[in-house]
Design a protein around this nucleic acid. Structure first.
Lengths: 205, 205
DNA sequence: TGCGGTTATGTCCGTTCGGATAGGCTATTC
DNA sequence: GAATAGCCTATCCGAACGGACATAACCGCA
């Protein structure tokens, strides 16, 4: 099974190659950039699967993925990335990627996923895909807030003034201020900047 | 040689552990967050070196590094990160980190670096440290700001009020306000929340 | 039927913020 | 010596913020 692993992190590339080859049944090639990867595709036999890091020289966003997918009459390409966003996963699969692999995946699962994808299937971690589909109440922070307060908090993370938030949510400014105040108490913020930071830190919005 | 590896990317953790243990002479423990790592420090014997991922739950910027460094009477802690910024490296070493390891480092070099750091030395990749010394002085953002403005911006990211910043920097409040204002213009922020976000986004502090 | 939680609106008040403007003070550079 | 850049202080003002009440409608639940 021929795998091309393209990631600019040598550390991951080196160790992952060893791991894959140790698992058996894999023949690997590596590249540190998109261009390098495509050059290998030119020179060598067809790969069963190409793993592309989302944050790598040459890929600007999903542009690189699409370029690789269409290269030389079509390739089987999966995305591998450190920051696992639902939006990215959806967009990648939508674009025709063979799969979406977050780096938070255990190494053993990755091997299985790679085998799976190389067979022609489409892969994405289920826990990850379902987590945000139905509901995202799992966030310890979001849990404590009412829907309205969450909306207001979202406005805060966007650096908006109370007045703006009021306009966007079709509320009066005093109401927004009330939500802001109670929201501070709930999440332990002293001001809007801190509230925004806390929300960001919690992975909200 | 006892190493604690803390990274929320299971993929890297799993493969790197195998690699290190394969290299010989290493005994490894792993954690997926800062809290988890510190708990291990509580429970187990002293580690010769702790490797912390910069982007991991619990680390907000370099705060987590400092927390780990000071934990339980002091630890040997090195930073490992995907986005290698000169500013981060400098700040980490300044804070007393045992080293700075970009994930773009080859796996073999990492093993040597870890050995080196566990011996009590301070490590940073030379090519990386020299490359950006002359060329890109620091962060494109930090570049535009004067030292004072940077200090004030740091205060903003810590959600401080002007008065607090003034006290901490031993300045008068009007002066802080001036720096805040000019700083806004330079980085294109409309208010302190946005300024804090931009600074965070740029990997500052 | 009453209770509590959520949402909404309002007022009052003191503080803080953001902007404008203006002056003085060091260094360094030309 | 003049010019420049960076730093510090100051005052004024309008707007925004943060907190404390008070009021009231709505809904689910006991």
């Amino acid at each position: 099974m021929r795998i091309l692993l393209a990631d600019d992190h040598d550390l991951l590339r080196d160790t992952l190659v060893l791991f894959l080859e140790g698992a058996g049944g894999f023949e690997t090639a590596t590249a540190a950039s998109l261009d390098e990867a495509l050059t290998l595709v030119d020179k060598q036999d067809r790969f069963d699967l190409i793993l592309l890091d989302l944050n790598m020289p040459g890929m600007n966003g999903l542009k690189g993925l699409e370029k690789a997918l269409a290269y030389k009459g079509g390739q089987r390409v999966a995305l591998i990335t450190g920051e696992a966003t639902r939006a990215i996963a959806d967009a990648a699969l939508e674009a025709g990627a063979a799969g979406f692999v977050p780096k938070t995946l255990p190494a053993k699962s990755l091997v299985n996923a790679v085998r799976f994808m190389a067979m022609g299937e489409q892969y994405a971690p289920i826990c990850f895909m379902t987590a945000e589909t139905a509901a995202e109440p799992t966030n310890p922070l979001a849990q404590k807030l009412t829907p309205r307060e969450l909306q207001v908090l979202e406005g805060l993370t966007e650096c908006k003034a109370n007045k703006e938030i009021a306009r966007d949510l079709d509320l009066s400014e005093p109401t927004v201020k009330l939500h802001v105040k109670t929201l501070y108490r709930k999440i332990g913020a002293a001001n809007r900047t801190q509230a925004a930071m806390i929300a960001r830190e919690a992975g909200l919005f």
